Amino acid sequence: MKIAFSPCPNDTFVFHAWVHHLIPGAPRLDVSYADINITNYWAAESGTNKHDILKISYAALPWVLDEYALIPCGGALGRGCGPLLLRAGTPSASDPADPAFLSGRTVAVPSERSTAYLLFRLWAAQNVPGGIGKIIVMPFEKIMPAVRDGKVDAGLVIHEARFTYPSYGLNLITDLGSWWETDTGLPIPLGAIIAHRSLQLDQIATWTRASVEYAWAHPEASRDYVMSHAQEMEEAVAKAHIELYVNPFTANLGEDGYAAVAALLGRAADEGLVPEIDLAKLR
């Protein structure tokens, strides 16, 4: 069975047990490791050589729901784990958090089919007079250096950047996760597990949930696997990453999770950022 997910610690932690044949009855996995911006487009590509299971952004769901189903476990959704909007500090910037700074400016983002991007655009529509000037897409690990070096005016960051941005001398404009939670009362839908609709979806959910539960029951078992894919990340940062993004929603999306996904995609469709979807296809 072909699967694609990112090399980030939360994904390798979640799928370690299944990848290493520790889930009874689960088929062997042929794994492709790729940034979520890549898996988003893999899922939407036409052709026969497609992955059976992928980790994608919830923001990419509207383009793939006819062919793929949302699996209600294994993904990343939670509270206090949203993307951050950052800028470099300058002597003239008495208030780095003033969103008016972004009016007409250039902002680097990791993807235009990401939850981070949708949250940014929804927030900017309410808070940036005159709107953003230019959006540049770049790999997420290059965004903070680009902001620090003045190549862009601000950057939208995800993943472990939550823990490391002060070391780049950057300042927080806003925590988009906190804004979303305050505005909606809902958790933040970040990464989704999807499976091709031709497969036994209930069984895939069972195997995925079993892999999550094994990871929690044996947290040290996945350590070497996680760190081998962690892109030279410090072990303490990888551990914090897992603790933040692997949570009860990873085992069961639940009603709050489904409501969060529906709210995000509904608001984004109203702004013309994604196609409208039939909400019944989420379940």
Rank of each mutant, 00 (worst) to 15 (best):
Y117R: 02
L172I: 07
M138N: 08
V147W: 01
I143E: 06
A100Q: 12
P166D: 06
L84D: 00
W179P: 08
A125M: 11
D66S: 13
S46N: 03
A154S: 01
L102C: 05
K50G: 15
L102P: 08
A100S: 11
W179Y: 05
G78K: 04
K134G: 13
I136Y: 07
S92Y: 07
T164W: 11
V107M: 04
P83Y: 02
R113M: 15
L118M: 09
I143F: 11
L156K: 01
W123L: 07
R79Q: 05
T164F: 07
D175V: 00
S111L: 06
L119M: 12
C73W: 04
C81M: 11
P62N: 09
G80M: 13
R87K: 10
I173A: 00
F140C: 12
Y168N: 08
C73K: 02
L118H: 01
G78F: 04
A97H: 05
P96D: 00
A108T: 02
S57L: 13
G133C: 12
L119V: 09
A146Q: 06
A97I: 12
F163S: 09
L77E: 01
V64P: 09
P83N: 07
L156Q: 05
S94I: 02
G74N: 12
A76W: 04
T106M: 13
A116S: 09
L86R: 01
L170Y: 14
L170W: 10
G80V: 12
A88G: 11
L170C: 12
M138H: 11
L119R: 02
L118R: 04
G155W: 00
E67A: 09
L102G: 08
A93D: 03
S46H: 13
N49S: 10
P145L: 14
T106F: 08
D98C: 09
A154M: 04
P96A: 02
L176S: 07
N49A: 06
I158T: 00
L118I: 13
K55I: 12
A59C: 14
F120K: 03
R87G: 05
